[in-house]
Amino acid sequence: MTSVTAGSLPRASARPAAPPSPWVRWGTVLAALPWLALSVATRRLPETGDFPYSLVFANGTGLLGLLLLTGLPVAHGLGRVGARLRHWAPWIGVLGLAFLAWELVTAKLELLPMPFFPPPQAILEVFLDDWARLGHSTFNSLVLLAGGYAIGAAVGFVLGVAIGWSRAVGYWAHPILRFVGPLPATAWLPLAFFVFPSSWSASTFLVALATGFPVTVLTWSGVAGVNKAYFDVARTLGASGTFLVLRVAVPAALPHVFVGLFMGLGGSFAVLVVAEMLGVKAGLGWYLQWAQGWAAYANMYAALIVMALMCSSLISLLFRLRDRLLAWQKGLVQW
């Protein structure tokens, strides 16, 4: 996410000698104020419920506010970290305001009904007290996702290349793909859970299915759309069929393959959560379901936050991989 600004960063650090105008320099300090206000409000205002971590929360936000208060004015002297900090200062400030509002309408004024809308310190409590179970669930989700995604991506890639390259494979695979492919992977769920020996293998299959379809279709279209002159060049230079596939068709189709990999990753998240909620007794999807069953809404929000972090990190990781492999392309989308 930070690389959105990557284009402007080098320029900012290229001329560190020119300090920002006093207006900008002191304007960024405003970002610290909501955090300090949040700390004071949490500590001083009476609470409507019993929240054991209110003091920890107040101390944490207070410390953050003080760090910002001292760090922001001198940010232009802190190199890259400082440049980044200054760039995000408006966001930090608005985020502090949002936390302040959240704190006020829940724990302090109880404008929102309590068990469903816990205050921030209740979610902090979940992270501090239940981190072991949350971590274990995240680990289980990642293992399931990695297995299914790897299988789906590998099979989809090979199948896509085969369909795009070979007329015979295309003839047999195309109708099946057209008929079965658009079916959402979750529709297979009831069937998968009694066909496969374990709910874990069934879920792996479903995640692979959700990943495999877009990867297959896009790899196929990528291979089929390769500039025919590329093949003429390689053929006159003495290339074998293997060379044409592996060294010409595949690298030329790679941008398409990555579109498929991104779509597949998005699809696999959806299937993963549903499969964990309905069958697998582990993972973040299961945690969500379990928390809701116990009306532990703070745990639910905590799990949602972890899930968002996990999915976002995986997407970022895939973007990194693409940027490395497709460095030869111009004008890539930044994430």
Partner: peptide, 29 residues
């Protein structure tokens, strides 16, 4: 056959290869 080579109106270089990589295609193949 590589003993008879065609140079097209479009250079038709492989964009994913460097200049060196493009020149190497025939030997590599």
């Amino acid at each position: 056959d590589p003993s008879r080579l065609l140079v097209f109106q479009d250079p038709t270089l492989y964009p994913w290869r460097t200049v060196r990589g493009n020149v190497a295609v025939g030997l590599e193949a």
